[in-house]
Design a protein around this nucleic acid. Structure first.
Lengths: 351, 351
DNA sequence: CTAGGGCTAGACAACGTTGTCAACAAGGGC
DNA sequence: GCCCTTGTTGACAACGTTGTCTAGCCCTAG
């Protein structure tokens, strides 16, 4: 049923298909002023019960819903935060996203989420698009190695917290796992089980987590007086073919490794696959836990991060900043935890 | 360095900390009109190279970035869509989210993402919050069983596509997997391997996918002339304790099942865990594929959905609607695919 | 020399909301 | 009976952008 009063109003407020009623329409229908509608909608005091019920009836009748775009423009705060991560579909980041979302929700914010696909330009594009939307804050898993592009945004008041990897070339909050420490623990564990020739396959160099983990690996080897042969160390993508080729190379020849420390989730999965086809058992410790790791035979020993906690911690820090915490940028490091399940406890089989 | 001209301007546009320069500021600095700045920012024609470079210099100097909130208010379209799903952290929905995001990106839109946690009120709250933000469209994995609350929003032009489960009590686009068909395939597969006593453990009743899968199970049993004993069928949550108890019950006694069809991902994982402790082998086919299913011994036979394709199809349909496709609501069904890996091919061991 | 056309540029209103402020009525104290 | 307080209400500007419309300029054709 078309609104019979629309003819009396200027053409611009006529009810068109696809256009929604505004507070003005509600006010006209209820026979009150615009501001009174605003008061009712926002639960502000100073409206009599009688007026309020008339307004509510009009809201109901017209199917009015406040336009938050306009509200945002007026109020300045958008009640939304942005999350930029590497890949929404990566099982490691799923709990992280969810944790960030929960904290946002608890703080009355909505979440914009996007994937950088590990492409620096895409991270920048996404982050700046979110800034243009005037999100209140950003949680970023960096893909870029230069975050100076964010300086004007941060100066303008967009709170920014980096997670999983630190920001580059700017000072900013970061919530990280102690990657080097976790790697040292992993390698020490293998050494304790008698291994001396331990390989490492990790993600591409210059990715902070990858660099830290290889650093921890080298430190642990050095701390135990073991030499690292460069053919035991491979940094590159996590593509299965690459990992397979590298592992097969390391596991053959007279100086074959007896144990592998795999630098992340996806490398570990491929390594498990390759090793399951291999005749001579090779011990394995992986960085990052994954579902069903305990069901494989042998179970896969891992250094577990807590991605949900990473996300929660980062988001909570973000909202503290939004609440006015102006302490200098801080770096929070969460520990990794060794979970022995069998694959890391295989003895060092000489040949 | 504070803008020296700010003193000459009214106090409301003075440069405050945390407030960003607007087109007005840029115009003043470049000595041009407001609209000219708008033209430059939006790449509209009708600006001389000289003027344009002055404007660009001012933009650069002030660190101006267009406020998209204002733009949205003015233009009506928000260039953003909302995604409401059950759980961002669920590995099944991760590729779906990512696919939706990719399509949104290809169409120049940003993505709001949120989890309903399978709570109907939360779905509604989230969806309506997104509507208040005037997202252009919504992709929803329903948790609610009454979507009439969306009627005014859809009438007002917010395109809505349901995915994984259909909408309830309204007509709307939906992109689904052929759950009943997949279930029939799974059960027929077990029957073909000699099983007669086949159990089913699924998610809570009234969840569409759960209902469809149990329906397919019953149909396949009936089609092969097999009776279904009600103690072989269990619908309820996916909580590991529940699944464990039900499965242990079904697998014991004189009428113990020889095969299980598990109704989803999480049930399957628990079932694998329980069966691995079990002495007598029980065949297993699970609905939903999962990473590493092939690495377990035996490999887990599954009916694989393609969550990325579900997401992509839904998002593409959404953007077709946004582009003006006004065909009646349609339901797209994607097939499930049987992947035999061993666990479903175990023979029916009588005792 | 002038009319007209093409181009650049800016003034102004509008998007839908919220904050400020003033108007007005009712009630109470003197 | 008057002033002041309290409470309810609405007019108006402002948020930062874009669409419309018009003014002014230079150039060319008649």
């Amino acid at each position: 049923m078309p609104d019979s009063r629309s003819a009396a109003r200027p053409a611009t407020t006529a009810v068109r298909y696809g256009s929604r009623p505004t507070m003005k329409d509600v006010a006209a229908r209820a026979g009150v002023g615009l501001k009174t509608v605003s008061r009712v909608v926002n639960g502000e005091p100073g409206v009599t019960a009688d007026t309020e019920s008339r307004v509510r009836a009009a809201i109901e009748a017209l199917g009015f819903r406040r336009n938050d775009s306009a509200r945002i423009l007026r109020k300045g705060r958008t009640a939304s935060i942005g999350l930029v991560l590497e890949d929404l579909a990566d099982p490691f980041y799923s709990p992280l996203s969810r944790a960030v979302e929960e904290v946002a929700r608890a703080n009355g914010s909505l979440l914009f989420a996007g994937s950088s696909a590990e492409v620096p330009e895409r991270e920048e594009e996404l982050a700046l698009a979110l800034c243009a939307r005037r999100v209140d804050g950003l949680v970023i898993v960096p893909a870029s190695d230069d975050h100076r592009y964010l300086e004007p945004e941060i100066a303008a008041g967009i709170a920014t917290v980096f997670v999983d990897r630190p920001a580059s070339r700017i000072e900013a909050d970061a919530v990280l796992t102690d990657n080097a420490g976790g790697a040292r623990t992993a390698v020490a564990h293998l050494i304790a089980h008698g291994h001396r020739r331990i390989g490492f396959i990790g993600d591409r160099p210059h990715i902070h987590t990858a660099d830290e983990r290889v650093r921890g690996y080298r430190e642990a080897m050095a701390a135990h007086g073991l030499a690292v042969r460069e053919e035991w160390v491979s940094m590159g993508g996590t593509a299965p073919e690459r990992v397979r080729a590298e592992l097969e190379r390391m596991a053959s020849g007279p100086e074959a490794i007896t144990a592998l420390f795999s630098g992340n989730n996806r490398v570990t999965v491929t390594a498990v696959r390759v090793l399951s086809e291999h005749d001579r058992p090779i011990a394995l410790v992986g960085f990052d836990d994954f579902e069903l790791a305990d069901l494989l035979r042998p179970g896969v020993t891992v250094i577990a991060q807590d991605p949900a906690r990473l996300g929660r911690t980062a988001a909570e820090l973000l909202f503290r900043r939004l609440d006015g915490d102006t302490a200098p940028p801080q770096r929070v490091e969460l520990p990794g935890r060794l979970i022995p399940r069998g694959s890391g406890e295989l003895p060092a089989l000489q040949h």
